[in-house]
Every structure is written in C-alpha cells, then in structure tokens.
Computed example of a mutant assay.
Amino acid sequence: MKHYDYIFSGTGLAALMTLNQMVKSGGFSDKKILLLDQDAKQTNDRTWCFWETGKGAWDKILTQKWRYVWFKNENSSRKMDLSPYEYKMIRGIDFYNKILKRIALQSNIEFVQCRVTGYSESAGNVVVQTDADDFSCRKLFNSVYDQKPVLEQTGFPLLQQHFVGWRVKTETPSFDPNVATFMDFSVPQKGNTRFMYVLPVSDTEAIVEYTLFSKDLLPQHEYEAAITAYLSDLHIANYKIVEKERGSIPMTSYRFWKHNTKNIVHIGSAGGWTKASTGFTFKNSDKLSKRLVHFLQRQADFSKFHKNDRFWFYDLLLLDILSENNEKGAMIFSAMFRKSHPALILKFLDGETTLYEDLQVIWQCPKGLFIRALVRRIFR
C-alpha cells in the first residue's frame, strides 16, 4: 500500500484551492501528496460567481465582471451600482486548468483517477479505499459530501440551492454585457424561493440560470421550461444553447466540523464551506482554504480547525424561516435590497461587517419573521 503525507479525497473547488495554497506557501514541497477523483476535471461542468473589491487573485481567468446588476421582483426592479465591489464570473474549466497546470509542475504531487469508496483511521494513519487500490496517509482532506448525517438529524434544516443554466447565443444583440441580473424573483414562485440569473458575456451571449432554494429538486424539463419561458418574456426567440450545466448545493448550518478528527478534515460542501444562506461557494472556499493551510503550518490536530461566529447564526435563522415558509425568500431578499446600499449587503453576506453594520442590514428584513425564528430557536 502506497503511503503519502496528505491525500485529497475529491478534487473539487475546495480541494484545489487548498492544494493551491499549499503550493504557493512553499512549505509542503517535501511532502508526498495524492489527489483522488473519478473526474479528470477536463470539462466545463460549472460556473462560479463572487464579488470582491479591486484586483483579485483570479482576475486573469475571469470570463466577465460587472459593476452594475439588476435586482427584480414581481413589483419592481432596481439597477444597482455595486461599487467598490464588482461581480465576477469564472468558468470551471478555466479554474481547473489554472490549478492543474501549477500542480503538474510539482514532482511531489500525484493524481489518480478513481472513485473513493471509503476511509478509516487507526494508529495515527488514515487508509483510503478506492475502486482502484487502497492508499494510506498521515492526513486526509475529504471533500466527498455525505448527506446521511445531515438527513438523520433534526436540529438544523437542510435546503438545496438547485439550478439549471443554459449558455445561450442569440442571432441579434439581446443582452447588455455591462449589467448582470443578480436575482430576478419576478418568475412564478409556486410556493418556493425561485429566481433567475442572467450573466451576459457579450451582447449576443449569456448564461441564463433558473435557481431554487427549496428542499426538493425538480424534473429536468421543469427547469428548462422555466428558462424557455423567461427568454420568451425577454423577447428572445432565435438562440442556440451552447452549453448546459446543472447542480445542487446543500444549504445548511449543520455542524460539519464535529466530524473532523485529528487526522481527517472535511472541506468544501462536506465541511460546510458553502455559505449556508446563499449557496455561494467560491469566496468562502478561498478564505477557508487560506485559513486551513495557515492552521496546518502551525499545528496538526484537524479537530481544532473551526471558527464559529454570529454570521453562522444569522444563516441558521434564515434557513429556519425558509424551511418552514419556503415562499418567503423573495420577500426577505427584496426587503434587504430595497433600500440598503448594495455594497453593505455584499459585505454583510461575506461576513465582514461590524455589529453596527449588521443591524443596518437586519433592520431592513421582515422583523416579525426573524423574531419568531429567533424565539423558536432559543426554546428549541
């Protein structure tokens, strides 16, 4: 059985970001590292969006960025200037190529394409089982999401951010490449929280995505019917579908970190790295991967890798509300964006506001809903 210092089970966003930070730090070049994944990461399987101020580490692989975005609901629309933030988009394949190219230059890193079937820990080592072979290591970074423990508990609600996106190309100019549609709640809600994204990369090409925050997924044809109807409402009839993507991201405040051990750390969706209230993953993974590598350079006990804060509790209250009243999402987000400065909301969603700034945002939300959720949570 081949032995390594570190094994990554799964090579998604969180794993590759963490590995990238390890390489950049220069502190792990003498360590044997193994990546395990059944996917070779050679296709564009997803798109990530995030916001940040000024130039960023990922700017060279951006597909597009926007300073202005639309927020819409059935009663109104607001074109928002995000300054000093910009809303940025990265295609999965461009991210994979960037990181895998860097990894290929490291003689201490190996990649094996296989399916991880399990792992076990004993005597200070971890053994990872795959459909190809077994491997052992001192430390395991696991990003293979197991929903079983989340489903078996009742203390923390579980929703899904699930979506289908089409990259469409039109015959005539149909989009404004300078303005993205951040959330459009004008689509029929049907008892859920449902909205559209429109992410234009030119005046004839855009990603149009139908997204829900709810417990249950839809049949494929329902997502696609909603996108078709939305394009029709935009008076876009002549287009071709260049690419399709589909995904489902767990939204929960479940305490994933309780499953960490001295030698095993759960990352990505498996570690609760997804922003529970919005499903945004890229920025959170960027922050947490840096924190994890810094932590690893200082100590070796993964069971101590966790930092809880008040934003975790804010997310929990929102998910409590949406779990009981899933149709309230449009009202909550509309209230938040109606009057507040967009930059303040984005800063809040990133968990970077002061307590005073928190209160400015929270004050705009439907107070009765959150007070009742708070009372229920306290006396749960």
Rank of each mutant, 00 (worst) to 15 (best):
R246W: 14
I103W: 05
K32Y: 01
L19T: 09
N108T: 07
A132E: 08
K339D: 13
D133E: 15
Y85K: 02
K347Q: 07
I267K: 01
L105W: 12
I236Y: 12
L359G: 04
E209V: 10
D301K: 04
E324M: 09
Q113F: 08
P177T: 08
V201Y: 08
G27V: 05
G351W: 12
T181C: 11
A104N: 13
E352C: 00
F295Y: 14
K139C: 06
V168F: 04
F28M: 08
K31M: 09
P149M: 01
N97H: 15
R255N: 10
S285C: 15
T274M: 10
A40K: 14
C49R: 07
G26I: 07
T117D: 10
L318N: 03
Y87D: 02
H266L: 15
R376G: 01
T47Y: 00
L158Q: 11
T261E: 09
M196L: 11
D203S: 15
T154W: 08
R67M: 04
S253V: 09
R46L: 02
N326H: 02
V201Q: 11
G155M: 08
K65T: 05
L34K: 03
R372C: 04
K79A: 04
F379V: 05
T172Q: 14
K72I: 08
V144M: 12
H221N: 10
L19Q: 04
R167A: 06
L234R: 14
R338Y: 11
A180Y: 01
L344C: 02
Y356P: 01
F182R: 00
K55D: 13
F141T: 14
A229H: 12
F348G: 00
R255Q: 13
D39A: 10
V198I: 05
A132F: 09
L140D: 07
A373I: 01
G92V: 00
K148T: 02
Q364W: 04
G124Q: 04
N178R: 13
W66Y: 07
T278C: 14
K41E: 05
T18K: 00
K31D: 08
A229R: 10
S25F: 08
W58L: 10
S174Q: 07
I93E: 11
K339L: 10
D146E: 08
S285Y: 03
Q360S: 06
E121W: 09
D176N: 15
Y119M: 09
K347E: 06
K304Q: 13
V201S: 15
K240P: 05
F163V: 04
V242H: 10
F50Y: 15
H259Q: 15
T11E: 06
E357H: 04
M183I: 05
L359T: 11
K2N: 11
V144R: 13
N44C: 05
T43N: 15
K32S: 12
N97S: 15
H266Q: 12
T53P: 12
S174K: 05
A132C: 08
M89Q: 00
E205R: 11
V265M: 09
A123F: 11
A229S: 14
A330P: 00
V168M: 03
T47H: 00
I378F: 11
N260M: 14
S122D: 06
D301M: 04
L36R: 02
Y223G: 07
